[in-house]
Measured scan of single mutants.
Amino acid sequence: VSVELPAPSSWKKLFYPNKVGSVKKTEVVFVAPTGEEISNRKQLEQYLKSHPGNPAIAEFDWTTSG
């Protein structure tokens, strides 16, 4: 189950709350306009370098507050 949070234009930000008793931590995933899922800052940096014209990296908020 995921919750969609505010994201930069043409992107989606999905929040996957951890299940009770789960060892997996809460996860935030950005979905690029191409449909590619980005789950960490390093991936995001690589994606933005190879896909010019996207929002600046500073516009991506990895917190769950939206």
Rank of each mutant, 00 (worst) to 15 (best):
Q43F: 05
A58S: 14
L48P: 00
L44V: 01
N54G: 12
T34G: 06
P6H: 08
V28N: 00
P52C: 03
K25T: 11
P52H: 05
S50T: 13
R41W: 10
P17I: 15
K49A: 13
N40E: 07
T34M: 03
F15I: 12
A7Y: 04
K42H: 12
T34K: 02
D61F: 05
S22Y: 08
P6L: 07
K24C: 15
G21K: 06
V1W: 10
T63A: 09
L48E: 00
Y16S: 05
S10G: 15
P55Q: 04
K25R: 13
K12I: 09
G35T: 01
V28Q: 01
L5I: 05
V3H: 09
G35W: 01
P6A: 08
S9Y: 11
A7K: 04
Y47I: 01
T64F: 12
L14M: 09
S39R: 15
Q46I: 12
H51D: 01
L44W: 01
P33D: 01
F30E: 00
Q43S: 08
V29T: 07
P55K: 03
P8M: 06
P55I: 06
E59C: 11
S65G: 12
V23K: 12
E59M: 08
G21D: 10
T34H: 02
L48D: 00
P33M: 02
R41C: 10
V31R: 06
V3N: 07
A58T: 14
V3D: 05
F60R: 01
V3R: 07
A7E: 02
K12N: 04
Y47D: 00
S22H: 10
P55Y: 06
T64D: 08
S2E: 08
S50P: 00
A7T: 04
N18C: 14
S65R: 10
P33N: 02
W11Q: 01
A32Q: 00
Y16G: 04
A32G: 02
P33R: 02
K24W: 14
L14W: 09
K42W: 14
N40L: 04
Q43T: 08
L44T: 00
Q43N: 06
S39H: 13
D61H: 07
G66D: 13
F30S: 00
W11E: 01
V3Y: 11
P52S: 05
K49T: 10
L14F: 15
G21V: 06
K12A: 06
S10Q: 14
V31D: 00
T34F: 02
K19E: 10
N54F: 03
E45N: 08
S2T: 11
V28M: 05
N18P: 10
V3F: 11
V31E: 03
K13H: 01
N54H: 06
E37R: 15
L48A: 00
W11F: 03
E27C: 15
K25H: 14
R41D: 08
I57M: 11
G66F: 11
K19C: 13
Y16V: 09
V28P: 02
E45A: 13
T26W: 15
N40D: 12
S22W: 07
F30L: 03
F60D: 01
Y47K: 00
A7S: 06
L14S: 03
D61N: 08
E59D: 09
P6F: 07
G21C: 10
P55L: 05
K12L: 08
V1A: 11
S10M: 14
K13G: 02
E37N: 10
P17A: 10
V20N: 11
E36L: 04
A56H: 13
V31L: 10
W11K: 02
H51I: 02
Y47A: 00
G35E: 02
S2R: 12
S50R: 10
K49I: 11
Q46N: 10
T26S: 13
A32R: 00
N18K: 10
E59F: 06
E37M: 15
Y16I: 09
F30T: 00
K49P: 00
S39Q: 10
K42C: 14
S10V: 05
R41S: 10
R41Y: 14
V1L: 13
P17W: 15
I38Q: 01
L14T: 04
K13E: 03
E4G: 08
Y16P: 03
T63I: 06
N54P: 06
S39E: 09
P17D: 08
T26M: 13
P55G: 05
H51K: 03
V29N: 03
K24I: 14
A32W: 01
P52L: 06
P33A: 03
G53S: 06
V28C: 05
G21H: 09
S39P: 06
G35S: 03
V20R: 09
S50A: 11
R41E: 10
V23W: 10
T34Y: 02
E37H: 15
I57C: 05
T26F: 14
T34I: 00
G53D: 08
D61K: 07
T63R: 09
F60E: 01
S10W: 08
P17C: 15
W62P: 01
E59R: 05
L44Y: 02
K19V: 12
F60I: 01
K13L: 03
L14V: 07
N40G: 07
S9W: 10
I38M: 05
V23S: 14
V31H: 04
E27M: 15
V1R: 08
G66E: 11
H51E: 02
L14P: 01
E4Y: 08
I38G: 00
Q46D: 13
F60W: 02
I57S: 07
G53L: 05
K25V: 11
Y16A: 06
E4C: 10
K19D: 08
E4I: 08
W62G: 01
K19M: 12
E45F: 11
S10R: 15
S9M: 12
V31F: 08
Q43G: 06
L44M: 06
S22T: 11
S65Y: 11
S2C: 15
T34L: 02
W11A: 01
H51M: 03
G35I: 00
P17H: 12
V20M: 11
A32L: 01
E45C: 09
T34E: 03
P6S: 08
W62L: 02
E4P: 07
L14H: 06
R41H: 12
V1Y: 12
S65H: 11
S65D: 13
V1F: 12
A58R: 10
V3A: 06
S39L: 12
Q43E: 13
L48T: 01
Y47R: 00
A32Y: 00
V20A: 12
P52I: 04
S39C: 13
D61A: 05
K19H: 12
Y47V: 00
N54W: 04
V1N: 11
W62R: 01
S39I: 13
Q46T: 10
F60C: 02
T64W: 14
P6Q: 08
P17R: 12
L48W: 02
W11Y: 01
K12E: 04
S9P: 15
Q46P: 01
S39A: 11
S22N: 12
A32I: 01
K49V: 09
H51A: 03
E37W: 15
N18I: 10
P6W: 09
K49M: 13
T64V: 15
I57A: 09
K42E: 14
K13Y: 03
P17T: 15
V20P: 14
S2M: 12
Q43H: 08
V1C: 15
E36K: 04
K25I: 09
V23Q: 14
T26C: 15
S22V: 09
F15K: 04
N18R: 10
D61G: 04
V20G: 11
S22P: 09
S10I: 05
K42M: 13
G53R: 04
T64P: 12
P17M: 15
N18T: 09
G66N: 11
S10N: 15
K19A: 14
S9Q: 14
K24G: 15
A32K: 00
I57D: 04
G66W: 09
N54I: 02
G66Q: 10
W11R: 02
K19R: 14
E4Q: 09
Q43V: 08
V23N: 14
S22K: 08
D61M: 05
F60A: 01
P6M: 07
F60Q: 01
I57G: 04
A58C: 10
E36A: 05
E36C: 03
I38Y: 03
Y47E: 00
L5T: 05
K13N: 01
Q46H: 09
V1I: 12
S50Y: 08
N18M: 11
K12P: 03
E27K: 15
G21W: 03
P33W: 00
P52N: 04
L5M: 11
Q46M: 12
F15S: 06
I38L: 08
V29P: 00
V23R: 10
P55H: 06
S9G: 15
F30M: 02
V1S: 10
S22I: 08
R41M: 14
P55A: 06
Q46Y: 10
T26D: 14
F15Q: 06
K24M: 15
E59P: 02
T63Y: 07
V23H: 15
K13M: 03
P55C: 03
E36M: 05
L14N: 03
E36S: 03
I57Y: 10
V20W: 13
E37S: 10
T63D: 09
T63Q: 07
A7V: 05
L5P: 05
F15G: 04
K24A: 14
N54R: 03
V29Q: 04
G53F: 05
T63W: 05
A7L: 04
A32V: 01
A7I: 04
I38E: 00
V23G: 15
K19G: 14
L14R: 07
S39G: 08
S2K: 09
V28S: 02
